[in-house]
């Protein structure tokens, strides 16, 4: 519910290893709210969120250790450079290693080598989105919750995103993605959920 208005009701799904749920629906239909509930940020008015079969409250320690949530906000500090931002975020999530090498490699994967030393405030919105997505290369998590990951990035990067999601699913990861683009993820058990 948002401001005491019911956005969606009796939505029920469960995802196993290697499964992906694509959430579609008009703006304001509650996609972001559903994803925030799934990642343990928000409360659902009714119903429960289960992780590995156990009902978990929002911000449950077990869930926090397993979820990687990339929302609309890029979670970058303007004062930090791209490299510093990623270093901070990956060590925040206790990613193994998390040294500069892995960060530089991730930035390279998203063709951001030249921008790695620039403060985030001078970068374009597209570049900032790519830095946000670079976290997918850095932070290992079983559950990915991505809110409009393909927005404001060009075709080459969408392909990179699709490859990352495919490899995540192939190693038994789970993904819940809200998007307008139809992501071409081959061979993954994909489920659709449309919020009216």
């Amino acid at each position: 519910m948002r401001f005491a208005a019911t956005l969606f009701a009796n939505v029920d799904f469960s995802l196993g290893n290697g499964e992906m749920l694509v959430v579609t629906g008009a703006n304001g239909s509650g996609k972001t709210t559903l994803l925030r509930i799934a990642s343990g940020l928000s409360h659902a008015a009714h119903g429960a969120l289960k992780w590995r079969g156990i009902a978990v409250a929002p911000f449950d320690a077990e869930l926090r250790a397993s979820v990687l949530y990339i929302g609309h906000a890029t979670a970058l500090k303007d004062e930090f450079t791209a490299e510093e931002n990623l270093l901070a975020l990956s060590s925040l999530h206790g990613a193994p290693g998390g040294e500069r090498a892995a960060v530089r490699e991730a930035l390279g994967a998203w063709s951001l080598d030249r921008q790695s030393r620039l403060p985030a405030r001078v970068l374009s919105q597209g570049q900032r989105r790519r830095i946000a997505l670079a976290r997918l290369n850095l932070i290992r998590r079983p559950l990915w919750v991505l809110d409009e990951p393909a927005s404001a990035i060009d075709a080459a990067d969408v392909a990179q995103l699709e490859r990352l999601i495919a490899s995540h699913l192939s190693t038994g990861g789970i993904a819940v993605i809200a998007t307008h683009h139809d992501l071409a993820i081959h061979g993954a058990r994909k489920r659709m959920l449309r919020l009216s």
Binding site: F59, R64, G71, T74, L76, D78
Partner: peptide, 9 residues
């Protein structure tokens, strides 16, 4: 800028 969400998670 969304970092507080990441900190909380």
């Amino acid at each position: 800028d969304g970092t507080l969400e990441q900190i909380a998670l």
